[in-house]
Simulated scan of single mutants.
Amino acid sequence: MADLQYFQPTRVADMVGEENVSEMLSGYLTSLDESLSQLRSYWQEGDIQHVRMTSHRMKSSARFIGADELAEFLQQIETDSLNETDNICLQTTRLSVVEQWCHELTQEIHHYLDSVG
């Protein structure tokens, strides 16, 4: 398998065992899709509190699968959403970056699952 850019299946295997990696990644994809949809809605509504909570949850899940760069970006969103004077939801390019990153990650996970399944 070519080098993976967006996640580390070995990290998942270390946590749940090699035999459970595909199942965990499939579950992650479902969760990621739901979380991204929620994040998008909260962002568009300007609901900073829920943006913070959703980015926190997404960050934790991203770390679990070894998507460290995505996790760092989500950490920054979570941290920046604590600043009451700045409405992070006005920075729509940040949402676009998360969406693009999640799209690339999803494609890579699907490719990985197809290659091992």
Rank of each mutant, 00 (worst) to 15 (best):
Tyr6Gln: 03
Thr10Ser: 14
Val12Tyr: 02
Ala13Tyr: 09
Met15Leu: 15
Glu18Arg: 15
Glu18Asn: 12
Ser22Pro: 11
Ser22Cys: 10
Leu25Arg: 08
Tyr28Ile: 02
Leu29Asn: 11
Thr30Ala: 12
Ser31Tyr: 08
Leu32Trp: 11
Leu32His: 11
Glu34Asn: 08
Ser35Trp: 02
Ser35Pro: 11
Ser37Pro: 05
Ser37Thr: 11
Gln38Phe: 14
Leu39Thr: 01
Ser41Phe: 08
Trp43Pro: 03
Gln44Asn: 09
Glu45Tyr: 09
Ile48Lys: 14
Ile48Arg: 14
Gln49Tyr: 10
Gln49Ala: 13
Gln49Gly: 05
His50Arg: 14
Val51Leu: 04
Met53Lys: 15
His56Ser: 01
Arg57Cys: 01
Met58Asn: 03
Met58Gly: 05
Ser61Glu: 05
Ser61Ala: 15
Arg63Ile: 04
Phe64Ser: 08
Ile65Asp: 00
Leu70Trp: 07
Glu72Lys: 13
Glu78Phe: 12
Glu78Ser: 10
Asp86Ile: 14
Asn87Val: 05
Asn87Trp: 07
Cys89Arg: 00
Gln91Leu: 09
Leu95Ala: 01
His103Phe: 09
His103Gln: 07
Glu104Cys: 08
Glu104His: 15
Leu105Tyr: 09
Leu105Asp: 03
Leu105Pro: 00
Leu105His: 07
Ile109Thr: 07
Tyr112Arg: 01
Asp114Trp: 07
Ser115Phe: 14
Gly117Val: 05
